[in-house]
Amino acid sequence: MGKTTTLFLTFLKIGAFTFGGGYAMIALLKEEFVSRKHWITEDDFYDMAAIAESTPGPVAINSATYIGYRTAGFWGALVSTLAVCIPSFLIIYLISLYFDAFLHLTYVQYAFQGIQAGVIYLIFSAGIQMAAGIWKKKNRLHRLILFAVAGTATALSLSAVHFSTLLFILACGVIGVSAYLAGLLHHTDTTRRKP
């Protein structure tokens, strides 16, 4: 079996059986490509994991593209990325066909009343967990961004003022870079002043 075919089948399997999102998948990928097939070295794998987590997009997609490219070039990347999406796509598409009818069942309606609260709980605890991780690192700028964005975004949204989430994200990236550049300037200033 060619490498591209193996990539396709492996990522199809991974796409079909990974619950719990990207991070659960990282462990599975390591087992498959580092320990069993030896297609990727351990160091390269950790580089990949860091890149997949910090670039935009789902970790699953990012790692499929990266591993696919490193083992079989452009076509490897394309085949792996598509393969990891195909199971989700089929499952969700099938569900979407019957979802409206399903939601009209009385008990399902009752259940989904509760589930709405469950989803808010999930999102809330994910946000708290992320915020706590940032808070613990004791970086003043990051703490400030956290509070400023949460405060303004909530206030704007509750006063029905339209704001773009996109602008917040990009502005904070720019603030991060500016703070770094300001730090550099400050640093060279103080080193210059020393006799």
Binding site: F124, G127, M130, A131, I145, L146, V149, A150, F168, I169
Partner: peptide, 9 residues
């Protein structure tokens, strides 16, 4: 930190 704040919001 911006993403964390937006998720909370």
């Amino acid at each position: 930190p911006c993403i964390a704040a937006l998720i909370l919001t």
